[in-house]
């Protein structure tokens, strides 16, 4: 493993302009309606590793995913892949076509309902330069085989498959471009629990086999714990904690991470009074000043309400919290492993 990360995200921000009739607002001088979905996020992923991004709905995870593959342009900050900036969907000039691929959350929307599976996968092969349709069909069959389906499935339409099978087709399509990096945006959250495990294991196997690097997004801590090497926790568009997986689950630093972990029901501790998730995610349109988490944080003080905390610590062990920095948080009462 080389030192230079395969993917580096620096100070990434995305502000959505929700102003209706923007030209009218510009003309009348009415203030614009801006939604900062992602706010100064930085992380890097070394080759062959999985970076897990976890957070509640609306925390900006999917926006990060879409910017990473080039589907959205960042408002600020940079994304570099293999030392070159990502400029277009799938990579763009300089990086090479299709080296970054994405697997989507909803397997029912990510496959064109009017196309046969062989054509869906074949399109990626065509864009990769495979002109011969028979060669494409043959390769599509191999890819289907690789993801645990059979070659004849290629003749079917997406609606003839279950959710888990469709997600396998999505994976086969992504693999058709021979990517090095896969962005997985909640690839299992639309699936049954039993199928989730199958898909996750398939993805881990493919990672070992092909040396893939993953940015894995989920709201499910158990899924994140299963696949990630390093975990980033997002809250209202900011990364509040980044840590190696073991570190994060054993000794979470940020109060938000602690609350999330504390809220997981455990079979071995059914009698313990669990601490509930308190409060709700603030409206992203009117985010609290200072640390965005302070209205829900039991340890918040004056400084938390006014000053933005920065992500501090080692690269794989950092938290954005004044309390952690000042050492005034109580030690984490580690739940029995």
């Amino acid at each position: 493993m080389s030192d230079a990360p395969l993917l580096e995200v620096k100070n990434l921000s995305k502000i959505f302009d929700l102003t209706e009739a923007a030209w009218l607002a510009a003309l009348t001088g009415r203030s614009r309606l801006l939604l900062p979905a992602v706010d100064g996020v930085s992380f890097s992923i070394p080759k062959g590793k999985t970076f897990g991004l976890v957070g509640e709905s609306g925390s900006g995870k999917s926006t990060v995913a879409r910017m990473t593959v080039g589907l959205m342009q960042p408002s600020n900050g940079s994304i570099t892949f293999d030392g070159k900036p990502v400029s277009a969907p799938g990579g763009g000039r300089g990086i090479g076509r299709g080296r970054l691929q994405m697997i989507f959350q909803d397997p029912f929307a990510s496959l064109n309902p009017r196309w046969r599976v062989v054509d869906i996968i074949g399109e990626a092969l065509l864009r990769k330069g495979m002109r011969d349709s028979l060669a494409r069909a043959k390769r599509a069959g191999e890819l289907l085989d690789q993801v645990g389906l059979v070659a004849v499935d290629g003749e079917k339409f997406p609606h003839e498959f279950s959710g888990g099978q469709r997600q396998r087709i999505s994976i086969a399509r992504a693999l058709a471009s021979e990517p090095e990096f896969l962005v997985c945006d909640e690839p299992t959250s639309a699936l049954d629990v039993s199928v989730q495990a199958q898909i996750l294991n398939l993805m881990k196997d493919l990672q070992d086999e092909l040396g893939l690097t993953y940015l894995f997004i989920s709201h499910n801590l158990a899924v994140i714990a299963h696949v990630s090497d390093v975990v980033g926790v997002m809250y209202l568009g900011r990364l509040v904690e980044v840590a190696e997986k073991k570190q994060l689950f054993k000794a979470p630093q940020h109060p938000y991470t602690r609350m999330l972990l504390d809220a997981i029901p455990r079979l071995d501790m059914t009698t313990r009074e669990r601490s509930h998730v308190v409060g709700e995610v603030a409206n992203p349109m009117s985010r609290p000043p200072g640390c965005h988490y302070h209205p829900r944080c039991p340890f918040a003080n004056k400084r938390c309400k006014s000053e933005d905390p920065k992500l501090k610590g080692a690269a794989n062990f950092a938290a954005a919290c004044h309390g952690v920095e000042e050492g005034r948080l109580p030690a984490w009462a580690a739940a029995a492993e």
Partner: peptide, 13 residues
């Protein structure tokens, strides 16, 4: 806005 369009974009269509 459906994902199959996004995925076609990523493929390079």
């Amino acid at each position: 806005v459906k994902d199959y369009v996004a995925s076609a974009r990523i493929i390079g269509t």
